[in-house]
Design a protein around this nucleic acid. Structure first.
Lengths: 227, 227
DNA sequence: CGCCTGTTTGATCAGAGTCAAAAAGTGTGG
DNA sequence: CCACACTTTTTGACTCTGATCAAACAGGCG
């Protein structure tokens, strides 16, 4: 099924943006759109019918689970992000919708052919992959030495950044795209600790809360010296 | 200065292995070899004269530093690994030799041209980049929920894996390529905790130690249920 | 309204951090 | 080869942050 590239909200920022109109149309023929509701699984770890996708709207999480079944969130995927195994014979991690999402999905075989046909595309994906790598490493660095409150503060900053339209200024008011439990499993903390951290950040005036999900950044600098 | 690809120990496993003899020779003309001794800095965070390199022998670490100057190791690079910024205008993290190392270095401009000239190379680098991404995420997952001893055990397993010639069996006897402090900063622990963890792993018969650096895996299964 | 899920708050506990000092390696020059 | 200085590792005693257990609270939705 063909995709409406003309009205695609990420047509200028996704990997396929490097293609010409004609090339893009050809690629779109091979792809199909898919909608997910919150909690739906896009890929499950171990899947062998590997595919890949560009996220058009919504948000995804990449998760793994420890021996006791506790989730650990390894990455968030935002619109225009690319996800999926191009080389491993099976999916390494679960990919699940954090909110209702819309994707542009390709069979691996077709994406493989596209890589051969359009060298520009391979380069664009390489670029994305390296950015993802930096994100993953930044998430690693985020945990280093910092206290629980500092970690939560840093996560809020990152989420504010992701919620922003402009590429370098965070939004000062936004809604959390995830539950406390999901924040906890991104940081390796517990729900209670995250909740307390948000409480103390608010008490010392770094943020203001609006209901359970609404966040307003009041004094971002103060979050990095968290109590 | 041209490189002796004919005798290169990673000629079949590095990214350039996908090139033909002739293509490889042409690429080698643009590269130069470099030797580093333990502790030498290959790239420093913020560097603008970005370059990239394939590691021929030895080992590298990718590090960042928190506000107090404490190191956090984000990744290890092993022979045939590729390192360097291809797209970011400056280096994001420090890259430092863990042991005496030998590299094959390319100016970004030349590597860029090579990507255009040899689409196969772009694909090979994409593959490597995705593998690095998985490594980084696995390192993230490694910290989840586990106790200090379990984390140290898992790190030993990963290092045994890396020290092995065969791609899927860990070596049961090997030398640690890093100090206790470096192990600690990979895991976000302290030197003392790492030392104690090694002590208890030995006491309960999971490993045997040979001097400060020598490790023998006795009962790998037991490490994952660490005490 | 009552049920269910998600969040907050409180009290207690344990694992890892910190500070301090002894022990084991490593390298140097006599 | 040994004596010495220096670094790295180990061990010990104590502290503190964040996990755990438990219960109250808030919001959605049938």
């Amino acid at each position: 099924m063909s995709i409406a590239c003309d009205t695609c909200p990420v047509r200028d920022s996704a990997a396929c943006a490097v293609l010409s109109e004609e090339e893009r149309r050809a690629l779109a023929k091979a792809g199909s759109t898919r909608r997910l509701t919150r909690g739906e699984v896009l890929f499950a770890a171990g899947d062998e019918d590997t595919a890949c996708a560009t996220l058009v709207s919504g948000a995804l999480k990449v998760s793994s689970y420890d021996a006791d079944g506790n989730e650990r969130i390894l990455a968030l995927i935002h619109p225009s992000g690319f996800i999926g195994e191009m080389f491993s014979p099976f999916a390494e991690h679960d990919v699940i919708a954090l909110s209702d999402s819309q994707l542009c999905v390709f069979a691996r075989r077709d994406m493989d052919a596209a890589l051969d046909a359009y060298p520009k595309l391979a380069r664009a994906l390489l670029r994305r992959s390296q950015e993802d790598l930096h994100q993953a490493r930044n998430l690693l660095a985020l945990g280093a030495g910092r206290s629980a409150s500092e970690q939560v503060g840093a996560l809020l900053l990152a989420l504010a950044q992701a919620a922003s339209d402009s590429p370098c200024h965070p939004r000062q008011q936004f809604d959390l795209p995830m539950t406390r439990g999901e924040m906890a499993s991104m940081l390796g903390l517990t729900i209670e600790t995250v909740s307390r951290a948000l409480g103390s950040l608010e008490k010392e005036g770094a943020i203001r809360r609006n209901g359970t999900r609404g966040i307003e950044l009041v004094d971002p600098a103060r979050m990095e010296t968290g109590g």
